[in-house]
C-alpha cells in the first residue's frame, strides 16, 4: 500500500513536466485512454500495445518503480539482482531482473548496457504465461526481496 502511495506522489510531483512530456510524446498521449490532465511524465520506452489479444501497458519510473498492466490489471514487480544461466550453455552473467507473482522463478532482465525493452518483454512473457487468462487482484500485491 505504501508503495502505491509513493508512486502517486512521484506521479503528481512530476506534473510540472506534463506539458513538455505531452508535446514530446503527443502521439502516444493521444492514443492512450487516460485523461490528459494529471498525466504523469512519459518515458520514451513507455508502451501501450496489444499482444495476443491482451492490452499491455508499461511505464518507466526508475528502477524498482516501473509499472506494468495487463488488460488494466496491475502486476506488482520485484527487482532482483541475479545470476542468469542461459539454457544454451553460454556464459552465465549477473544482471538485474524483474520477477512477479506470475514469473516468480523466471526473472526478466531489465534495461542495462546488455539489454533494452525489458519491461515490454516482461509484459509479453506474462501474457504468454497467462495463456488467455487474466491477472487476479492477488497479482497486484507486491513484496520485497
Amino acid at each position: 500500500m505504501t508503495d502505491v502511495k509513493r508512486r502517486d506522489v512521484l506521479r503528481y510531483s512530476a506534473a510540472g513536466a506534463v506539458t513538455t512530456a505531452t508535446a514530446l510524446y503527443g502521439v502516444q498521449a493521444l492514443t492512450g485512454s487516460e485523461p490528459a490532465e494529471g498525466k504523469p511524465r512519459r518515458d520514451p520506452r513507455d508502451f501501450d500495445e496489444d499482444y495476443r489479444g491482451k492490452r499491455i501497458r508499461g511505464r518507466h519510473f526508475g528502477r524498482g518503480r516501473d509499472e506494468l498492466h495487463v488488460n488494466d490489471r496491475p502486476l506488482a514487480l520485484t527487482e532482483v539482482s541475479t545470476l542468469f544461466v542461459p539454457e544454451d550453455g553460454s556464459e552465465p552473467y549477473v544482471a538485474v531482473g524483474y520477477i512477479s507473482a506470475i514469473n516468480h522463478y523466471d526473472p526478466v532482465e531489465i534495461d542495462d548496457a546488455r539489454t533494452q525493452d525489458g519491461l515490454r518483454r516482461l509484459g509479453r512473457r506474462i501474457v504468454d504465461r497467462l495463456n488467455g487468462l487474466e491477472l487476479s487482484a492477488e497479482a497486484g500485491k507486491g513484496h520485497f526481496h
Partner: peptide, 29 residues
C-alpha cells in the same frame, strides 16, 4: 542469487527454478 560459485545458488537457479518454469502455470507462480 548472484553468487556464481555456490552449490545452493546453482541448484536453486539451474534445477529448482527451471523445473518450476518447466511445469509452468501455477508452478511458475
Amino acid at each position: 542469487s548472484t553468487v556464481s560459485n555456490s552449490y545452493r545458488n546453482r541448484n536453486e537457479i539451474e534445477l529448482h527454478n527451471r523445473v518450476h518454469n518447466y511445469v509452468g502455470g501455477h508452478m511458475g507462480t
